[in-house]
Amino acid sequence: MNNKQLITFATISALLANFATAEDLVELSIEFPPPMITGTPVPAVLPHLEPPGTPAPTIMAPAGTKNLAAGKSVTSSDDFPIIGDLEYVTDGDKDAGEGYFVELFEDIQWVQIDLEKEAEIYAIAVWHFHSQKRAYKDVVVKVSNDESFEDYKIVFNSDHDNSAGFGKGDNSAYIETNEGKVIPVNKLKARYVRLYSNGNTSNEMNHYTEVEVYGI
């Protein structure tokens, strides 16, 4: 396939995606890493935990929807992670274990992904740290076209008491598993995705193994 054919194919795909109707949508397939639990369990106690085993939502998206975050640059509120690199967040490695997650310091911290251009987003998937059954506190996910997030839309908020300061959220906290958390996003258009957390039920630190942003 030469360059001209590639461009033509991409253009047609984009046009088709833009004019997609409900009939054109297909179920988004998200790949989960193998499950792995290690260490001494720590009881996860939060007042608004969703029942364990809650299935991930089915995401319908136009054919050609893909993970736009792959390999994109990541910034953070914490310039000096305890361990790991911010690059891990979008490097495609979702395995649990040493060398696959970045650990940010305690209190409210965020990571931000620059998709490099505005995209129509259908889902965001996040794996904080899934080798222990723990729940992260005050998980808030925002999207924006403004790098500084002066203006934004919240697509997930499990902060039940507004301790993070973005308002009380309606979403339940959840136990981390190899399936992470798949967050439906209703075709919002944005270039930046920012994810907050405020420690977890096992310790005060914040972790990210992988974030995927599905869109076109």
Binding site: P34, P35, M36, G99, Y100, N178
Partner: peptide, 16 residues
């Protein structure tokens, strides 16, 4: 008692 997932091999990033 631990599940198979709880008893899985502990992975590591080969780069490390």
């Amino acid at each position: 008692n631990r599940s198979v997932a709880g008893s899985a091999d502990i992975p590591y990033n080969p780069k490390l």
